[in-house]
Nucleic acid binder design. Structure first.
Lengths: 170, 170
DNA sequence: TATTGTTATACTCTATAACTATA
DNA sequence: TATAGTTATAGAGTATAACAATA
């Protein structure tokens, strides 16, 4: 038998799953709420806008094709057009023609955009540290990182790519 | 020294945190997407509506005061009024006067509501099993449940109650 | 023919403040 | 005075389909 621990220290697997599932869902919801509040307070941007800025900030020369940016999020292209419009209006990004393909548009993070990202980041990491990591010791943190990574990879496999979803719709 | 493992098997704590954070955020986003799709497909309800039904299904006599239902979610009362209207229109809940307090309204799940919940649940648990738990062994699952519970409790402490938020606004 | 990005449009959802009624 | 719930309203966000330009 692999079930070595007794009832006191080892819950039934089904109950454990239910517990983990509800904790995951609730923790995700609470964390997102705290993050939205912090980002709105510190930089007046939404969570999604923060991640679009992060993607561009990390990208070579701070630029990505619109479609690639859309594919790295859950967004439809029209949804990204909307968000890009808001970010451009706020001066955080610019849209410029792509040099190699005249159909494409590159989204480029501006200096103001990088400043805004830099202003939002420390408080953001604080929220993550206080909300997630201060509750765990190093061993737990290691295990959590490993499990979450495995789960994320599994979910990636289960999720069709944005391009595939688009093809299916059209 | 507590840091017993070497560089090959033990990442820097900061990098581990970053990894865990991004995995958590992405996994949460992917899982939510899969859940929304499944619930829309199987029962034509949103994730939020599923959880409102779940709360009522579990409650004694299938009924809760509107304010209590609102407090158990991230919602403003007007937001819950909106969602309750949609659920009522779909025949999944009813609103009846509270017997003890003439200001209050009880939301009650209907038979149709319970049927809808029962129809959505198996596929929902399938998504959770396939997306989250099939990636882990029993030991990992135990550790994950413990860590997520600790994180959720920490986040609850950091999050002001809905009532407190309401008081602060008014 | 297929792809890129935008637009028009309609819909869902959320929050704030004002309001009614009850405690 | 405070609380419960609704409503009016306005705004943010999303998705679909149709479109123009380019590959």
């Amino acid at each position: 038998m692999l079930r070595s621990r007794n009832k006191e220290t080892r819950m039934d697997v089904g109950a454990r799953r239910t517990e983990a599932y509800f904790a995951f869902v609730e923790a995700g919801s609470l964390l997102q709420q705290l993050m939205e509040d912090q980002l709105r307070r510190d930089a007046n941007i939404s969570y999604l806008q923060f991640f679009l800025l992060a993607r561009l900030h990390q990208a070579p020369e701070g630029r990505l094709r619109m479609t690639d940016l859309a594919d790295s999020t859950v967004h439809s292209r029209s949804g990204l057009t909307y968000q890009a419009g808001r970010l451009e209006q706020a001066g955080l990004i610019e849209r410029v023609p792509a040099p190699d393909d005249d159909r494409s548009v590159m989204a480029v993070i501006t200096d103001t955009g990088r400043d805004t990202y830099a202003r939002a980041l420390p408080g953001h990491l604080d929220v993550v540290d206080q909300g997630m990591f201060s509750a765990l010791d190093d061993t737990q943190l290691d295990a959590l990182a490993g499990s979450l990574t495995a789960i994320r990879d599994r979910l990636r496999d289960l999720t069709p790519s944005a391009a595939a979803r688009r093809r299916k719709r059209d």
